[in-house]
């Protein structure tokens, strides 16, 4: 055996183990990377590709039409209605989620109620979060039916009379579905903010008391600043989730009456599964993705700033 072959023999395991060490981190992320590739990157790239074709899925030989689909979707008055409705529904829901969530969280964090009472309220307040969208839709369709419990109660108490069409009246439908979504979503805020409230050092309130601050001043000068990081994160996440709400809208109003509750999600669904215009549906989905990405960028930047 020559000296050079001995060298190679001795060096080889060292090189192999070095390469192995170098590839170890990649091996760890490999399963996740594969899953993300197959389940996210491939579908997203395919949908973006579809949005530049004349029609896909139902057409064996789709042709490239570049931005024609974007021009068609962006020029559709129903799309404009869907954008406005989505903004109203999302902003209304998120604002109410925050106010209600914060109010209930503060109530559950108060020293004025006994532990039993707080446990009882906590159970009651969290209930809406335990139901799936389908159950919530069925429940509220029954409650808000013209012959439902809500109208019965309003009639009995003299607040309103007759068979109010909460979901079928074009003037009331958007408000009604927003209300249902508020009811379904506030517990998430409540629980997160309650955790935040419980983490605020008591010293801060004591110091504020020594400085002569009243309850309102303590709320705006201690509570809100301390909860600010949580509030911003929750707001951004809720904006993303609520803007994509589909199941609740579809199962309560289907985007109607007329198109007063048409959202970007229902508009996209109808293009895909009612008109079988999968390329236009992909275009609409890409536009929704772009809007969501704006919010996602803000969320990531905020998270980075926190870190």
């Amino acid at each position: 055996m020559t000296s050079s072959s001995v060298d190679r023999t001795l060096r080889a395991p060292g090189r192999f183990s070095k390469a192995r060490r170098g590839s170890e981190p990649y091996a760890f992320i490999l399963p996740t990377a594969l899953l993300i590739t197959v389940l996210m990157i491939v579908p997203i790239v395919m949908v973006i590709g579809y949005s530049f074709s004349d029609n896909v899925i139902t057409n064996k030989h789709p042709e490239l039409v570049w931005l024609a689909n974007y021009a068609e979707v962006l020029g559709d008055p129903v799309f404009h209605t869907a954008v406005i409705n989505t903004v109203v529904f999302t902003v209304g829901s998120v604002a109410a989620h925050l106010v209600l969530g914060l109010a209930f969280a503060m109530m559950l964090n108060t020293q004025l109620l006994s532990r039993f009472t707080k446990a009882l309220f906590r159970t009651v307040y969290i209930l809406p979060w335990l139901f799936t969208a389908a159950v919530i839709a069925v429940l509220w369709r029954l409650l808000l039916s013209p012959n439902g419990v809500v109208n019965y109660l309003l009639d009995s108490t003299g607040i309103a009379s007759g068979q109010v069409e909460w979901l079928s009246n074009p003037d009331l439908a958007l408000g009604s579905v927003t209300f249902i979504n508020i009811w379904a979503g506030y517990p998430f805020f409540m629980i997160s903010l309650l955790a935040g409230l419980q983490g605020i050092p008591h010293d801060l309130y004591e110091a504020a008391t020594v400085d002569g601050a009243n309850g309102i001043q303590k709320f705006f000068s201690v509570t809100i600043p301390q909860l600010r990081p949580i509030i911003i994160s929750m707001l951004l996440l809720d904006l993303i989730w609520t803007s994509q709400q589909f199941a609740l809208i579809w199962m309560t109003t289907g985007g109607g009456p007329i198109n007063v509750t048409e959202m970007l999600s229902t508009y996209t669904y109808k293009l895909a599964f009612s008109r079988y215009e999968f390329a236009l549906a992909s275009t609409s989905a890409v536009l929704v993705l772009a809007l969501s990405m704006v919010l996602a960028v803000f969320y990531v930047r905020h998270q980075r700033a926190r870190d």
Binding site: R15, K18, A19, G22, S23, Y26, L30, A33, L34, T37, V38, V42
Partner: peptide, 25 residues
Amino acid sequence: SKDARARRGTFRLLGVLATAATLAA
């Protein structure tokens, strides 16, 4: 460098595996 070569080899492997997984799916 050897590290860079090893990294490039790993990326290539990842690419092949991702393609294979996609095709399999």
